[in-house]
Amino acid sequence: MHYDFVPMPHRKPLRWPDGKRLAIILTTNFEYWDRAREDPKPFYPGGPGIVGGELAGNVYDNPNWTWREYGQRVGVWRMFDVFDAEGVPSSCTMNAKMALERKAVVDAAVQKGWELVPHNYVQTDLLTDFAHDKEKEREVIRRTLDIYREAVGKPAKGWLSSSLRSTMNTVDILADEGLIFTTDLLNDDQPYLVRTASGKKMVSVPYTSEVNDFTIFMRQGQTADGGFAVFKEQFDWLYAESEVSGRHMNLGLHPHVIGQPFRIRALRDFIRYAKRFEGVWFATREEIAEWYLENHESHIPTADGAGEGAA
């Protein structure tokens, strides 16, 4: 994986289609956790728990597992009601095992015509487990993409790794499999191109770990009013900047967190607030990536020497 370091002042103004200023992605993460595994070594849960303490990996963790399952049974449907009532789509990410174990959730998003993005096979496994074995990582990605294709009815266009834990090989593998965007990188408010070993172009459509219900509610302890204030503050500043050059804002949402009755108002109130502004685009990642592939030269030219470094 390689991308040029191009600081914001060195870019041309980004102009979204149809005169839009700020692209907003409302990300709903469909995630599945196995109850336990054979290995007694504690496994990474892919997100904070509601009850502290660490159990062996082969021991069922009842409060944390059922708290997360609340999102599948109740919380996600509450979120769907909000999105439908406000007339905006969600860009959903999905573990492959959601399609196998919680098919009703995936089917509902498909029926609504919403975007779904592959999000690893299962939330408790990480691609970094295969950081030094590219072919095993490829196997996991292919297995996920095969299940995705069957569940969604079309090939995937992009990818989000569980807990954003990708490897230096992930983007190259995704390009080899015909994908056009990754959302693992956290380093920008605009899309940009990532170079791959095959020469195929990959677009970074950044995710966020800060404007994220885990961070806002679980780590910071914000109320619904506090959560809305964070969403609004992010929006207001980016919207002001977008007068000069387009920006992208992502909300990272998890049904067992934001889908709780005492938090959901933060999401509803933010959507209502954002809809009041001209030039707001409730976009999908695929729309952004496909547009950027056609228009990236007007933003960050790819001529030799365009960057001031590399990553």
Rank of each mutant, 00 (worst) to 15 (best):
D225M: 06
G259L: 11
V152K: 06
E86F: 09
A274T: 07
E38P: 06
G226R: 07
K201C: 01
D236R: 11
D129T: 13
T215Q: 14
V122M: 08
I271L: 12
P255D: 04
F130E: 06
Y121P: 02
K154M: 03
F262A: 13
R219F: 13
G87D: 05
G47S: 13
H299Q: 07
A283C: 09
W114M: 04
P17A: 05
L267Y: 14
G227S: 03
C92T: 03
R268K: 14
F5G: 11
L267D: 03
A151P: 00
E135C: 03
D125H: 15
A36G: 03
R219V: 10
D184N: 13
N212L: 10
D269W: 10
D172T: 00
P301Y: 02
R21E: 10
A311Q: 09
S163T: 13
V122H: 03
F214S: 10
N212I: 06
P301K: 03
T215F: 15
M8L: 14
A56T: 06
S91D: 02
E150Q: 13
S242R: 08
E54M: 12
I288W: 00
P301F: 01
W159G: 04
R263T: 01
R11N: 05
L55M: 13
H10A: 15
F80N: 09
G199L: 02
I147S: 03
K134I: 07
H119V: 06
T93P: 03
V244M: 14
E243A: 15
A56Q: 14
V51C: 05
F231M: 11
G75Y: 10
H119Y: 04
R285V: 03
K112F: 00
D146C: 05
R247F: 10
E297V: 04
Y273P: 08
K112S: 02
S198M: 04
N64M: 03
R219E: 12
A175K: 06
H10T: 06
G57R: 07
H248G: 14
A151L: 00
P17I: 04
V6L: 02
D34S: 11
Y60M: 10
P206N: 04
G75Q: 03
I173E: 05
F235C: 06
A229T: 01
V74C: 05
K97L: 15
W159Q: 00
P89H: 00
V171C: 04
V117L: 01
A310I: 09
N95W: 08
K41W: 11
Y207S: 13
F181E: 03
E286T: 05
Q111F: 00
L253P: 07
P89W: 01
